[in-house]
Design a binder for these strands. Structure first.
Lengths: 110, 110
DNA sequence: GGAATAACTTACTTTTTTGTAAGTGCAATC
DNA sequence: GATTGCACTTACAAAAAAGTAAGTTATTCC
């Protein structure tokens, strides 16, 4: 088997840099069906600390994956949602979630 | 928008538990075209320490994702490859790598 | 007007992950 | 028989990620 140029390496690493860590994929998962308030996300992701949620959202925002919208009429209402670009992540999310589900079933059987 | 049961949460977390971290997806990426020796992987993944490579391979082995085969005829030849079960990860790997590639292009343009 | 809720921020600690560097045993090659 | 390459192992250190807890500002709700 010939030694391929390690080209894919940089691509996988790029993804990891943007989506890696304990929380980001989880946050994105819960945004995939539409905008969520900060407090909603907190409830949807058991165990996450407010600081972590904030921090990760800020990073996703700066990477232009997530939008932050403040509603001026009803103050202290902030919603996070995918940017159009961010939606390109959904095809990554799905197989990943599916695999987790299948793997869970498997280890339950064993 | 109704608050979904946070079911996907556990699935995403399961995947993260098995495939998370700096190196595992990268290692698997380089196994997707067939078996590789320890020394080959070391070359294919620039910057990885031997200790890390060993450690991650051991974990993938214990999770039954990767096979370790020792060739007795030619000693000190050890090959790592996907188990049949491990191959189920390939559909996760591809979109992830594709997204990284697209994202790289995007940030180069910006 | 007092309490509660929302969306944060900050200082600090702990834990986890990753890295460094040196060393082992064994076989093949010079 | 000395050196080299391979597949590891170990002790230790550094860095990165995550967590805790308290506080801030402003706004509804009673």
């Amino acid at each position: 088997m010939p030694m391929e140029q390690p080209e894919g390496t940089i691509f996988v690493q790029t993804t990891l840099k943007i989506l890696g860590g304990k929380w980001k994929l989880l946050i994105l998962w819960h945004l995939k069906d539409g905008a969520r308030r900060f407090s909603e996300l907190k409830k949807l992701i058991p165990g996450i600390a407010e600081k972590m949620l904030m921090q990760q959202l800020r990073e996703l925002e700066k990477d232009e994956i997530v939008n932050r919208s403040v509603y001026k009429d009803v103050t202290s209402r902030v919603e996070y949602s995918f940017t159009d670009y961010g939606k390109s992540i959904i095809p990554v999310l799905k197989p990943l979630c599916d695999w987790g589900q299948a793997h869970l079933k498997r280890i339950e059987r064993l």
